[in-house]
Amino acid sequence: MNKIIFLLTAVIVAAIIFFVPPIKGLGELAKIIFFHVPTAWVAVVAFFSSAFFAAKFLRTKNFSFDELSARAAKLGFVFVLLSTVSGAIFSKLTWGAYWNWDPRQTTIFVLILIYGAYLTLRAAVTDEKVRAKVSAVYSLLSVLTVPFLVFVLPRMYFSLHPSPINSSGVEMDSEVVIVLIAAVIDATLIFVRLMRR
């Protein structure tokens, strides 16, 4: 699996540098989206994975699920930080400001807060059994914010965030779409590999 991931990553990096044309109206620097979108995707996947393993732990009391839930949260925290920093750079390039509490920025920041709270809770509880229980419950409680972040928040605030898919279809060059999808798959594979560590 390591070899496949390494090869895929190398091909994607080469494609971004040599094959993908500058993004319409945004230029060469905006290619940071090939890093930003996959890391944001993995941050969300890790969030749901953590909650899934938390639910499995509460049902079975098998501590290996607690370990998986914690590992997914730790990886998710790293990916969400990478996504936030790359998103802020993209925001500066396109909107002229690193941060303006756009709904998407709010969503990613709430994810940082949830991951941070979850990891702080784990650090604050010393008893292994209690730690596993309370962190699983918090993981599942925090999932409740997802419908709000996805469906309600974007209605409350105006968004500058580019929406590549709208009613008229995908608004990107086909090369960009292909490389972006490959980058998302690559990032997901990296996450799966790190989960199996």
Binding site: L113, I114, A117, T120, L121, V134, Y138, L141, S142, T145
Partner: peptide, 30 residues
């Protein structure tokens, strides 16, 4: 529920708002 989670935690005072804020944000903003 958050208070129940932090009962066994070593640093309750600081931990409580950290845990509570993200889950109450959907109430807070509207």
């Amino acid at each position: 529920l958050t208070a129940a989670l932090t009962t066994s935690a070593a640093v309750k005072g600081g931990l409580f708002p950290i845990l509570l804020f993200p889950v109450t944000l959907p109430i807070f903003l509207p």
